[in-house]
Design a protein around this nucleic acid. Sequence first.
DNA 1: CCTGCTACCTGATGGC
DNA 2: TGCCATCAGGTAGCAG
Length: 276
Amino acid sequence: MPELPEVEAFAQALRPFVERRTILKCRVIHPIAVRPSSGRGAKQAAAAMERHVRGQRVMAVQRFGKYLILQLAGGCLVMHFRLDGQLLWFDSRKTTGHVDVAFEMKHGTLGFVDQRHFGRVHWAASPEVIPGIAAMGVDPLSKEFTATRLTELLARSRRPLKLFLLDQDKIAGIGNIYSNEAMWHARIDPRRPASGLSTAEARKLHKAIVEVLRRALECCLHPAPDLRDANWWFQGLEKIVRVYGREGKKCRRCRAPIQRIAQGGRSTFWCAHCQK
DNA sequence: CCTGCTACCTGATGGC
DNA sequence: TGCCATCAGGTAGCAG
């Protein structure tokens, strides 16, 4: 559930299940999911997590960028879903599917699920000790994310706009889908250097980013996410996507064919006719 | 400091 | 059918 809207929707859906409840037991089933970023010490990390988390009460659920945080009475659980990770709720201690880490509570079990094992769960004394969180840029749905702020950030980067938007240290929470969508709505060529945008273009882009993310979040919240359904977040996407994944199909504005190009090793979808 | 490339994993899909 | 290449919503680590 990678990008900001999906993680935010998940945080909201998760709260009634876990807030003010106690994790009776933590089971690390696939230690790879708790492996430190150094790549070694997965077993020790697993043992440490099970020890730290057992008996802890969940005080709050928060989102930082694409990270989901469970604030515990002592310390916190920091989760990142990368490409395919997700959370699932099971009504008993029994879990099914590719659960990497299970958090058992009195009324059921929260499972961190990722069959591809890209996603990560870390225990930390506080979220800021995670480097990706410490360096994180402005949240695009916060009031700090203004057109002026975006203009300043753009001015300091000569990278192609697409790569700028994916940089979590600048704006936190935008991924491949919503970066494509925002640039399409703002009618800006993804290859252009970030610093080359005019003030008017920056303002248009700001509006597009906020609207795309707000709309996606609304879509994710209605109907409300079902933590028991492994596929909920996949569903609403079709309704809001205008360019992502539409290579060769007609642009919904001008009917020109949507192009796919590679930027930073990832696909960018855009309309060469109406994005300038 | 900034930028660009690759590894990390597994499964689905499409061409031959 | 089988085999191989390519692709997938992300980021850390490293080299230059």
